[in-house]
């Protein structure tokens, strides 16, 4: 298989049932949105690559998890092998916001002694009238948890790219600083074939190839 990315980050989406995790991912990876989506049974899998800076392509491997408590025994096994996590809540559902703290705690405790890079995502920002969570509150929570905060809408395609990009950037920066590095037996970060190894001509050809699709 051709490796056209320099790094692969494994990212997991967390949050209550029906906050819109799958919709967010479908919008991000496939550019589509549907008013009604099937509930995720178990774990679902998506991928997309991002150009994080010129010449550096990051492949994001995205794991969608079922929100129902029942599937926790399955989804927890994915925590450990993820480098980043989107803590998603529904801006129109107060409860899902209150649960964010629990999600954060659960995951953080589970992966000790390692850490995960999070981003807090307030989803369904298009439903302004039904909004139950204020921006300030969410920002406050984000500050408390020491994470970034973004409000997104899969329906209007607002900020979806940004949310994933911010997270990927954070991880990338931490990686450059050496805080995060690929290690054996951990799939959170993987490095692919770097551009430097390729001869320029070959790189060119690779580029062309990738354009064909």
């Amino acid at each position: 298989m051709d490796i056209l990315w320099q790094y692969q980050f494994r990212i997991i989406l967390l949050g209550d049932s029906t906050v819109g995790k799958s919709s967010l991912l479908k919008r991000f990876t496939d550019g589509v949105y549907s008013d009604v989506a099937d509930p995720t049974v178990g774990v679902d899998f998506y991928a997309r690559s991002l150009d994080i800076e010129p010449g550096v392509k990051i492949k994001l491997q995205l794991w969608d998890t079922a929100g129902q408590e029942r599937f926790r025994s399955i989804t927890t096994s994915y925590y450990r092998n993820s480098v980043g996590g989107l803590l998603v809540f529904d801006l129109t559902n107060r409860k899902s916001f209150e649960h964010v703290r629990e999600w954060h705690r659960e995951v953080s405790e589970h992966i000790l002694p390692h850490h995960m890079v999070y981003i807090l995502v307030g989803h369904k920002s298009d439903l302004t009238r039904e909004r139950k969570v204020l921006r300030d509150e969410a920002e406050q929570l984000a500050a408390e948890l020491g994470v970034r905060y973004v409000e997104t809408s899969a329906k209007c395609n607002s900020n979806v790219e940004r949310a994933f990009e911010l997270l990927a950037r954070d991880i990338y920066e931490l990686m450059k600083m050496g805080e995060i590095s690929a290690r054996d037996g951990w799939d959170g970060v993987k490095s692919g074939l770097t551009a430097k190894v390729l001869y320029p001509a070959e790189e060119e050809r690779e580029r062309e190839k990738s354009c064909n699709c």
């Binding site: 298989m1 490796i3 990315w5 991912l25 990876t29 496939d30 589509v32 997309r48 690559s49 392509k57």
Partner: peptide, 12 residues
């Protein structure tokens, strides 16, 4: 066969 995966690596 829609699912997602806008994956840039391919072998056409």
């Amino acid at each position: 066969s829609t699912s997602p995966r806008r994956n840039s690596c391919s072998k056409p």
